[in-house]
């Protein structure tokens, strides 16, 4: 039994850190809602002025940025997610020559940071005339996402009781049928968590967009925001509104799926 004071201490500390996490976020939302005609200060609240969002949207061209981000993110998540399920299935549940070595190649892809590849990637994609297209944003991120996704799905498939796969084989199911109809329904939490993570990382990617894209029409939301900031350092409310616009889609996805997402992260096993 823990003492009452200890209980209080626990809640106090949890509350404190929650507050600390929330305060800047609430602050920027308040700032985005301020009356633009007043003297603006971060975090103060003087009523709700939704017009800021409209102004930021129009002046900042955020509609176009969000569209680019959506195209890139959805493509990356769908393609990388599907390919990860396929390769994770093979690595997790099939025995074939060289699977160990091949898996290390995937692990390598997981370890190499974008920063180490960005320079050659730029020149390679430029040679293929792919810079300043969505492909320059999509393809490299599919690659990094697939490395992670394969690792993630393999771990899931390895946790599936082998007898389930064997029962399906005796029942006459093909490996393809077993994957989509027997195993994938079980994989929902793992797939969901993977989706949220890939969505988050892809939406928030900055360096790649900064390097690959000069055409304003292709700018993703984080890149657009950084340019918007360059132009509007003095206008606090507009910048705050723009920030909120850029952050919102991921926060919404997170809020919708957070219960499954956190559960997926929590039941994550740590393998030595």
């Amino acid at each position: 039994m823990t003492s009452r004071t200890e209980q209080t201490l626990t809640y106090t500390i949890l509350g404190l850190f929650s507050l600390l996490a929330l305060a800047p976020i609430v602050g920027i939302v308040f700032t985005a809602l301020q009356n633009p005609d007043n003297v603006n200060a971060f975090g103060s609240f003087d009523g709700i002025h939704l017009g800021n969002f409209k102004d930021a949207w129009e002046q900042g061209n955020f509609g176009s940025y969000l569209k680019s981000s959506a195209i890139v993110t959805v493509t990356v998540v769908v393609v990388a997610g599907t390919l990860s399920i396929l390769s994770g299935y093979a690595f997790g549940l099939m025995r074939f020559r060289g699977s160990g070595v091949l898996f290390y190649v995937f692990l390598l892809g997981l370890m190499v940071p974008m920063e180490a590849m960005i320079v050659p990637l730029y020149y390679d994609l430029r040679d293929l005339s792919l810079t300043d297209t969505y492909w320059a944003l999509i393809l490299p991120q599919i690659a990094t996402s697939v490395a992670f996704g394969t690792f993630w799905m393999r771990a899931f498939f390895r946790s599936v009781p082998r007898s389930l796969v064997e029962a399906a084989r005796i029942d006459g199911a093909t490996s393809w049928f077993t994957l989509w109809r027997v195993l994938l329904p079980l994989a929902k939490p793992a797939v969901l968590t993977m989706t949220v993570l890939l969505f988050m990382w892809t939406w928030n990617e900055f360096l790649l967009a900064l390097v690959m894209v000069t055409d304003e029409g292709l700018r993703t939301a984080p890149l657009g925001l950084s340019f918007f900031q360059g132009r509007n350092t003095s206008n606090l409310t507009l910048l705050a509104a723009g920030s909120v616009i850029v952050a919102t889609p991921v926060v919404v996805v997170y809020m919708f799926l957070q219960r499954h997402f956190i559960r997926g992260m929590l039941s994550g096993a740590v393998k030595g």
Binding site: L86, Y89, A90, F106, G109, P140, A143, V146
Partner: peptide, 14 residues
């Protein structure tokens, strides 16, 4: 099953 993922990885990371 691994081929598509591997091609992408080889072309864009390796």
């Amino acid at each position: 099953y691994i081929l598509p993922a591997f091609l992408i990885l080889a072309g864009l990371i390796l």
